[in-house]
Design a protein around this nucleic acid. Sequence first.
DNA 1: GGCAAGCAAATTGTATCCGATTGACGGATG
DNA 2: CATCCGTCAATCGGATACAATTTGCTTGCC
Lengths: 229, 229
Amino acid sequence: MSENKTTLTDAVHDLLKKAIIEQALKPGMRLPEDTVGEQFGVSRTIVRHAFVRLEHEGLIATRRNRGAFVAEPTRDEAQNVFEVRRCLESDVIRLLCKRMPESGYDRLESHVRHEQAVRGKDGPVAIRLAGEFHILLAELTGNPVLARYVAEVVLRCSLILSLYARSHSSDCAVDEHSQIIEAIRSGDAAAAIAIMEHHLGAVADRAALVNPQDSIQSILSHYGKELAP
Amino acid sequence: MSENKTTLTDAVHDLLKKAIIEQALKPGMRLPEDTVGEQFGVSRTIVRHAFVRLEHEGLIATRRNRGAFVAEPTRDEAQNVFEVRRCLESDVIRLLCKRMPESGYDRLESHVRHEQAVRGKDGPVAIRLAGEFHILLAELTGNPVLARYVAEVVLRCSLILSLYARSHSSDCAVDEHSQIIEAIRSGDAAAAIAIMEHHLGAVADRAALVNPQDSIQSILSHYGKELAP
DNA sequence: GGCAAGCAAATTGTATCCGATTGACGGATG
DNA sequence: CATCCGTCAATCGGATACAATTTGCTTGCC
């Protein structure tokens, strides 16, 4: 934590984000400002700034005078996030079918090859790459605003899957990524969107099916709110 | 500024947001933390927290050790925001055609009547209501995540129009709002989207046509970035 | 044995303070 | 006369200090 050309807040923000999406920090886990601060060797001020951003991104939730917690979306919230993701990624496809940049296909195929290289490994790298494919698609539209929103929902989806899905390993079938590329190349927006919907639908459905028997305290915490107003 | 049940940061955030979209704070205007803080009677800490959120929402831009400025989007950025807005609002229409809630039409028509009541007045109220129609549409989807994104881009569009458009008075033709409601009621998603696209397209085009001869320093400030890395 | 009230500890909300970086002004110099 | 460099004021990034609120535990009472 010695020298950064970027601001400390950014660094802490990125680190926490990474920790959350890699499931190092599990949903519902408490994040006291002091603890985080002294862990990274920074003051509470910095941590607090990072928390503001993370809360805005939906990755943590803060309650007045009670502290910050890693977000623990309900099924409803999760469905909402997935719905927005489907909408946004459909829009991305539509735009790409109209104006895919020259180097676009090369970059996409290169990324898919990268994904295939780590296929089967059930680690943080695979999780990250799977998400980054979708973020790369959004970036290729040339619209940074759209790309930021896509990146945000993709991240939240990672968090959601870590709550409700059993394993990350097959979140994004690499084959389907290739299919999406081909569909876009053919210029058939409807077909490409159909594949993407199927691709994302499968992920969302899988999340909805799993009963989170391994996180009893998570379930109870939701019911508990009723008794303690 | 005496008693708030919500946190001070929220209050400052809301106030600044309101000031920006009502053009009280004009794009490019400087926002020193001290000034804002003592103006609202709070410390710089609070202001900085509010700034973090505002920057995330694209309403202000901060430069290291130089302070915060009301966002001054370039034409490219503005086009990107409008594009995302078109995408998101089309998605909203699609969803509403499938599942408009019972009270939805009542609330929409009530809002339109409210808009007609202030028709012709070129004040902050008209600006706010015009945007809130679109935000209300998004909220009726029942998806808060989508609603938040729509609210964000609508706000940014307000800011953009205050930069590039001559007048806010005719941003949202109230008649077109009624047409949109009717199109959704008929269940014809394609038609409704077409109207919405036209509605938003007109606004965007108007913004693109106006040459901002009245803000030379704004133009130069953009070119100036090239010389001063 | 259970419940309510009250006290102590922990944690957040806010303010103030110090150091660092930036931009500007002004004088020295080729 | 233009350019360069040093000093200075302004402002932000970050740390620390204090106040307010919540929480959990203890204690006493029913």
